[in-house]
Amino acid sequence: MTDSHLERFSTQVGATTPADPTMLPRTIDGIVFALIIIPVSIAALDTLDIAAISQLATAMLRIILDAIPHVIAAGMVLAVAYVIAKFASRLLTQFLATAGFDRTTRRSASSVTRKTASSARPHRRHRRSCPRRQSAPAPFSQS
């Protein structure tokens, strides 16, 4: 696959073109470098036959080498999950648009806004139209 094939595939999936077009080649370069340098380093340390250095360094490099397939598998799972999520998002967006859900929510939101705006206005009471209540005398007043 060339860069143009990868870019076309990524736009089909829904991803935007990366800001740095050399990012993918540099990443692949780093992975290939690690896949070459780690086994060579293990072999070189084994030929030195210095137990204090080679055993610890070889164990560390083997752990890293064993982790690489897991990291690649996790990346593949994330890529597949991303593609499925993008597909589901597009599918749901198209379904809701054809069902008229956006128009329904717009109408509901505008009616709620009008109701909220009308209920938020303070009620004015005119003193002339509402007679004042006279306070009644207390029924049992002690003088």
Rank of each mutant, 00 (worst) to 15 (best):
L65W: 09
D66I: 15
D66Y: 14
D66W: 08
D66A: 07
A67M: 14
A67F: 13
I68Y: 06
I68M: 15
I68G: 02
I68T: 04
P69V: 08
P69L: 06
P69Q: 07
P69I: 10
H70Q: 14
H70E: 15
H70C: 09
I72Y: 00
I72E: 03
I72W: 02
A73C: 06
A73L: 12
A73E: 01
A74I: 01
A74L: 09
A74T: 13
A74D: 06
G75W: 00
G75P: 13
G75Y: 00
G75V: 01
G75N: 01
M76D: 06
M76P: 01
V77M: 09
V77Y: 04
L78R: 03
L78E: 07
A79F: 03
A79L: 11
A79G: 08
A79Y: 06
A79C: 04
V80Q: 04
V80D: 05
V80E: 02
A81S: 13
A81H: 06
Y82H: 09
Y82D: 06
V83T: 10
V83C: 06
V83H: 02
V83A: 15
V83I: 03
I84R: 02
I84G: 15
A85L: 07
K86V: 11
K86G: 11
K86A: 11
F87G: 15
F87Y: 14
A88S: 10
A88Y: 09
A88E: 10
S89D: 08
S89W: 05
S89V: 09
R90E: 10
R90G: 06
R90Y: 05
L91P: 07
L91M: 03
L91V: 12
L91W: 08
L92S: 08
L92N: 10
L92W: 14
L92A: 11
L92C: 11
T93N: 09
T93P: 13
T93C: 15
Q94G: 09
Q94Y: 11
F95D: 03
F95I: 06
L96Y: 08
L96S: 05
L96R: 02
L96N: 03
A97Y: 00
A97P: 12
T98W: 05
T98H: 05
T98Q: 03
A99H: 00
A99D: 00
G100I: 00
F101T: 05
D102P: 01
D102W: 02
D102A: 04
D102Y: 04
D102E: 04
R103V: 01
R103L: 01
T104M: 11
T104V: 14
T104N: 15
T104K: 00
T104H: 09
T104P: 02
T105D: 11
T105W: 03
T105V: 15
T105I: 15
